[in-house]
Design a protein around this nucleic acid. Sequence first.
DNA 1: ATTAAATGTTTGGATGTGTCAAACGTCAGT
DNA 2: ACTGACGTTTGACACATCCAAACATTTAAT
Lengths: 253, 253
Amino acid sequence: MNSAKHPIQAVQRTLDIVDVLKEKREARVTDIADELDFSKGTIHCHLATLEQNGYVVKNGQQYSLGLQFIDLAHHATDRVDIYDITRAEVDKLAAESGEMALFTVEEHGEGICLYKAEGEDAVQTELYVGYRNELYHTAVGKVLLAFMPEERREEIIRETNFEQITPNTITDPGKLRAQLTEIRERGIAYNHEETIQGLVGLGAPIRDQDGTLYGAVSLIGPVSRMEDERLTEELPKLIRRAVNIVEVNITSL
Amino acid sequence: MNSAKHPIQAVQRTLDIVDVLKEKREARVTDIADELDFSKGTIHCHLATLEQNGYVVKNGQQYSLGLQFIDLAHHATDRVDIYDITRAEVDKLAAESGEMALFTVEEHGEGICLYKAEGEDAVQTELYVGYRNELYHTAVGKVLLAFMPEERREEIIRETNFEQITPNTITDPGKLRAQLTEIRERGIAYNHEETIQGLVGLGAPIRDQDGTLYGAVSLIGPVSRMEDERLTEELPKLIRRAVNIVEVNITSL
DNA sequence: ATTAAATGTTTGGATGTGTCAAACGTCAGT
DNA sequence: ACTGACGTTTGACACATCCAAACATTTAAT
């Protein structure tokens, strides 16, 4: 992520304010001014500008994010051509497996969940559509890393700040690269309690005939149900079938 | 919508750029510079700032909206307490009626679609989650107007720019007010081909015991299926049931 | 190949604008 | 009525934004 030479400070400030509103859900002028260490007057002007454009809502003294962002989100998703097809397949996948199924895409070196479907027995996680996570410790993340162009992969790995989230989290770039090679051979990536203890995930890439990566589909479930042949045979088969259907449809776009 | 006394121009410019990207889906620096009548250098700096923050993505020369807006959209929706409950009921409503069911909320004098469920025979419209429309010519819109505080209603009507979208569109504030009174009595609003020829809609408000308005639920279908007792009895009954369930759950928040 | 034409990017300098501190207005609680 | 806390407005100064032009880079054409 090459940083801008001449970032526009006023805009940066506004984006920081939006970020605070995202974290806090609601905030007053003074709250934000304290948090970001700016004068009340400045924050006020920024919020007023945002409000005028519908990006912020004011309830009494409390400001919060406006629903207009949903509109922007829709238009952003519009760029993902396979969204509709994949969505349908992820629904099926969730129904067939009973687990939670996800569709994730890479952007700016992060994995962004674009769709989530819950099967009958799906685990409850704080994962939501729009959720962003680091690539190195999830199944989809490792899939995306494995199948993206090498230079980009190395760039992302170089900029990754490895954290030992659980005992199983991979924190060594070398080990990660080795596992990515395996994943390229097998076509399936696993997450063995590397993100959350007790949770296992597996994912596969969506690619066209040229090998261009479009995203990844995954299943997440409790370790108790994710073992033996179900984990190594049954569920991978379901995912591969779902992914194949999407891939067939890519050409017709 | 009281305009800001001292809007921050640089921020306004960035928001205008975002708007162009929303409309065009993809655009180059020059495209945007021409469209907004700014120098290329200026647009470049703004885009660089946005990209650095993940709000914009660059593919070669083409810029487009980043998926990070989905994250913001999620947090904005978070503010709508009844979202989850209503969503479930709208799903049922669509299944029962076979038509398209919607959940809409008012913000900044506009109706914003927060959830959409398609029944078996649902009409296909360009309506999407996040879609914003004027209140005066839709069923949900009229519901929201009818049940909001009077001063706010008058403020919105005063600022409304009435357009004759179809022959049936109400363009007279007086007539609109009269119909809103009816709607308050009946508890159901109709849209008789006022937005799109051939499409009929009906909606009801979601309110708590104090009468505070939370949003509206509606059904949309082709005029051929939306007539006689189905329109005046059957469908209103379904909607009322859905709305009631949500309303009961409001108190437990 | 070589040139030409668009484009993205960077630069420096003049203008105009964002920022702050302080004053003002408003509201809630005592 | 008074106090405190907050949002809003004001005015003036510092400096950030913007433009035009030069530069770099890519694409198209000859």
